[in-house]
């Protein structure tokens, strides 16, 4: 299994966590993900995910003037998004400890 396949679903949670930290726009978000070590996937992948999260009302967006000129779309978490993030953290912790148990104490 490639790491891209493993990432599916997990990357959603990470995006929520990054937006939770601070209001971001697309490029910033991609850059943050890269900084955290997710460099195997192409940056554009975040946009289909962001569109879906917006439809699911996990994030909302506002247009703001940027220094460069064109308006920029900034994302923030909705209440539903905050809840989803908490659930993701709980799921991830459970999953992580299960995987670790499997790998270490066979």
């Amino acid at each position: 299994m490639s790491s891209t396949q493993m990432l599916k679903g997990i990357i959603d949670g990470c995006i929520l966590a990054i937006i939770h930290e601070k209001e971001v726009y697309g490029y910033e978000l991609a850059e943050k993900l890269e900084q955290y070590g997710f460099d195997s996937f192409s940056e554009g992948t975040i946009y289909p995910l962001l569109i879906r999260m917006q439809k699911e009302e996990l994030v909302s967006s506002t247009l703001k003037k940027s220094t460069a000129g064109p308006k920029r779309k900034y994302y923030t978490l909705t209440q539903k998004g905050e809840d989803e993030l908490q659930q993701f953290i709980a799921r991830w912790e459970k999953l992580q400890s299960n995987v670790n148990l499997c790998l270490r104490k066979q």
């Binding site: 697309g26 490029y27 991609a30 554009g44 569109i51 940027s66 460069a68 064109p70 308006k71 779309k73």
Partner: peptide
């Protein structure tokens, strides 16, 4: 989406 990607590509 085209505007957003344009902004991203520029940066």
């Amino acid at each position: 989406i085209v505007e957003e990607l344009e902004d991203h590509l520029m940066e």
